[in-house]
C-alpha cells in the first residue's frame, strides 16, 4: 500500500506582483512511497528537492498535480488530524526549534497542539529512544551541540508517533561522526516504529545508505529513479553519472521550461533534447529514466 503519492507535481513561483517572471521550481514530478519504504532524493542546490518536500508536506500548494497521503487527496492542504501522522526534520537544526524555548517545551509542543496527555512518560520514552540526556532538556537551543539539537528535533517529530517522516538534509551541517550517529538513529527508528520516510540529501553515499530507492532531481525535474544499489552500480542518465562519480560538470544554467535541463552540459546531446524535455519512463525493474538515449520521443 502506498502511503504517499505525488502525481505530476508542478510548482511555479512568480516574482514580482503582477505579470512578474515565472520561476518553475518543480516540473511534473511523480513519486510514490510504499508503507514501510524509504526513498532518497538527491540533486544539487536549486534542483527543487526542498520545494518537493514542502509540497508533499502541505506547506506549499502545488500549481498543478496532486498529493495523496494515506489514501486521501491532500493537495489543498493536510487536515489537522492527519498532520499528526507526518513528521518533518528540517535542514538547519539551529533554526528548527524556537530559540527562546527550552528543548523540553519544544519536544512536547506537538502533544500540546494535538491535546494529548501523558506527557511525562512519552517524553521519557522518546528521549531514551533518541539517546538524549535528561539534563539537556532544560537548556535552550544555543546552549547545546548540533547533534543534541538534531536529536531534540527528531524527538519532537516522533513524539506524536507519525507514520511518515520527511527529512530535508538533516545532517548536512553536522560533523562526520554526528552525522553517522543521526543517520543510524533515523534508520533504526524506522524499523522500530514502522515508519516510512523520504530522505533528501546531496550526498550520494548518504542517500544510498538511507533509501531503498533513490530519485535524482535536476532543475525541478525527476530525471532518474532506481533502487539504490542499481543506481550506484548502473547510473544511466548522463547527469546522474557525473553526480555519482563526483566529476566536474562545468558551469551552465539548467532551469528551463523547455528541453532537457542537462542539454547544455550533456556529452550525448541530440537535437530532440533541446526541443522537448524527455519524460520519466520505465526502463528495467524499478528503474525509471528521463533521457532520449533510452527511449524515443513518444
Amino acid at each position: 500500500m502506498k502511503i504517499l503519492e505525488g502525481i505530476s507535481l508542478t510548482k511555479v513561483y512568480r516574482s514580482g506582483w503582477i505579470g512578474g517572471r515565472k520561476i518553475p521550481a518543480l516540473i511534473d514530478v511523480t513519486i510514490s512511497l510504499e508503507k514501510g519504504g524509504s526513498l532518497s532524493i538527491i540533486g544539487e542546490s536549486g534542483a527543487g528537492k526542498t520545494t518537493l518536500a514542502k509540497v508533499l508536506l502541505g506547506i506549499t500548494t502545488p500549481t498543478k498535480g496532486r498529493v495523496i497521503f494515506n489514501g486521501k487527496d491532500v493537495t489543498r492542504g493536510i487536515p489537522r488530524n492527519l498532520r499528526r501522522l507526518i513528521g518533518y526534520i528540517p535542514q538547519h537544526p539551529e533554526s528548527a526549534l524556537d530559540p527562546r524555548w527550552k528543548l523540553y517545551d519544544s519536544i512536547i509542543e506537538s502533544l500540546r497542539i494535538h491535546r494529548i496527555e501523558k506527557r511525562r512518560e512519552q517524553v521519557k520514552k522518546i528521549i531514551e529512544r533518541v539517546s538524549l540526556d535528561e539534563d539537556v532538556l532544560q537548556r535552550r537551543p544555543h546552549e547545546v551541540s548540533g547533534g543534541e539539537l538534531q536529536r531534540a528535533v527528531i524527538a519532537s517529530s516522533l513524539i506524536i508517533e507519525p507514520i511518515l517522516l520527511i527529512c530535508d538534509e538533516p545532517t548536512s551541517m553536522l560533523d562526520a561522526s554526528t552525522q553517522a550517529d543521526i543517520l543510524r538513529l533515523i534508520r533504526s527508528i524506522k524499523e522500530d516504529m514502522n515508519l516510512s520516510y523520504l530522505f533528501i540529501s546531496h550526498n550520494v553515499d548518504v542517500a544510498s545508505f538511507m533509501g531503498d530507492r533513490i530519485g535524482v532531481m535536476l532543475a525541478g525535474r525527476l530525471i532518474e529513479l532506481a533502487p539504490s544499489r542499481e543506481l550506484l552500480r548502473n547510473p544511466l542518465h548522463p547527469y546522474t553519472e557525473v553526480f555519482i562519480n563526483r566529476k566536474s560538470v562545468g558551469a551552465g544554467e539548467s532551469t528551463k521550461l523547455r528541453g532537457c535541463p542537462f542539454y547544455d552540459r550533456c556529452p550525448h546531446r541530440m537535437p530532440i533534447c533541446k526541443k522537448k524535455a524527455p519524460k520519466l519512463e520505465k526502463l528495467g525493474e524499478g528503474h525509471y529514466i528521463a533521457c532520449y538515449r533510452y527511449h524515443s520521443e513518444d
Binding site: 514542502k54 508536506l57 502541505g58 506547506i59 489537522r80 498532520r83 499528526r84 507526518i86 513528521g87 518533518y88 528540517p90 535542514q91 538547519h92 533554526s95 528548527a96 526549534l97 524556537d98 527562546r100 519544544s106 509542543e109 506537538s110 497542539i113 494535538h114 528535533v153 519532537s156 517529530s157 506524536i160
Partner: peptide, 26 residues
Amino acid sequence: SKSYIERLKCIGARDSYIMIRHLLPA
C-alpha cells in the same frame, strides 16, 4: 523564515497559535 515555523505548521499548529506562542513573544 526559520524552519521551526515550517515544522510547527507541519505538526498542525494553527497560524494564530504560531503567532501568539512564538512570534509575538519573540
